[in-house]
């Protein structure tokens, strides 16, 4: 049914949040996973950057025979290259992550690609349920594990959310053997990016609860008030009915009962 589909997954070089080391990006890997589940190893995985980058082998280790790399220098605008490539090569579905883990990580890539190709873009998808008669049934991830059903015509671009199925393990052997097919590609320098100054993230000050105190008494109280959460309410020696009622009231109050 879906085997003749042309699915392209775009991957980037991720970055571990703790160690800062390069890795396969979690969302991109999920995009590859989704592509592989739809099209087996017919999925085409595309990267714009340096084919010598070892991290790409972590994607290949998911069981890909090859990975196509549009050779680009770090200063180049990868989105332009990817857009040109996709305009030339027919694809039915283009899968990306939501946001890159390194670089500007603005999350604009899928939007710019969709705009350039003139295709619809579905954001933050959790799954593609089916593709039939040129139409895809998609589940979009909403906050708190909720899902929305969406229908879209092919071709389209979709960004894959963290709620999608976790990417399969990357195995060393296949990763080492996969072919990294390097394609020389025209580079468009990202001149605007060159103006950016990048530095390690500063810690953002936590917003304090500002006390609009007009009187000394209020200020005193604000300064000496006990912080909340020290010891909750304890209900002891009461019949279970009342205890249950207390819990139930809290659940209602919090609005978690639907």
């Amino acid at each position: 049914m879906t085997s003749d589909l042309n699915i392209v997954a775009l991957v980037s070089i991720g970055q571990h949040p703790k160690s800062g080391r390069a890795r396969r990006a979690e969302q991109d890997a999920r995009a590859v996973e989704l592509g592989m589940r739809l099209a087996g190893d017919n999925v085409q995985v595309l990267h714009a950057g340096d084919a010598a980058e070892e991290t790409l082998r972590q994607y290949a280790g998911m069981g890909l025979k090859s990975l196509r790399v549009l050779q680009q220098s770090p200063q180049a605008d990868a989105v332009v290259a990817l857009g040109d490539y996709l305009a030339e090569h027919r694809a039915d579905v283009v899968l990306t992550g939501v946001r890159a883990e390194s670089g500007e990580s603005s999350g604009m890539a899928p939007y710019l690609l969709a705009e350039k190709l003139g295709w619809p873009l579905v954001t933050r998808i959790a799954d593609i349920v089916s593709i039939e008669n040129g139409e895809a049934q998609i589940l979009q991830a909403l906050p708190r594990g909720q899902r929305r059903a969406i229908q879209v015509r092919l071709p389209f671009v979709a960004s894959v959310d963290m709620a999608a199925q976790v990417a399969r393990q990357s195995a060393f052997g296949p990763g080492r053997r996969a072919e990294l097919e390097s394609l020389p590609w025209v580079e468009t320098p990202d001149s605007e990016r060159a103006q950016f100054k990048e530095a390690p993230a500063r810690k953002r000050p936590k917003r304090l609860k500002k006390v609009k105190a007009t009187t000394a008494a209020e200020r005193f109280k604000a300064a000496t008030a006990k912080s909340q959460g020290t010891g909750g309410r304890i209900i002891k020696d009461q019949p279970p009915t009342e205890q249950a009622q207390a819990i139930f009231d809290l659940l209602l109050e919090e609005g978690v009962l639907r």
Partner: peptide, 11 residues
């Protein structure tokens, strides 16, 4: 914030 929240970009 850039790089998944691990860097600051001034622009």
């Amino acid at each position: 914030r850039g790089a998944g929240g691990s860097s600051d970009i001034t622009r």
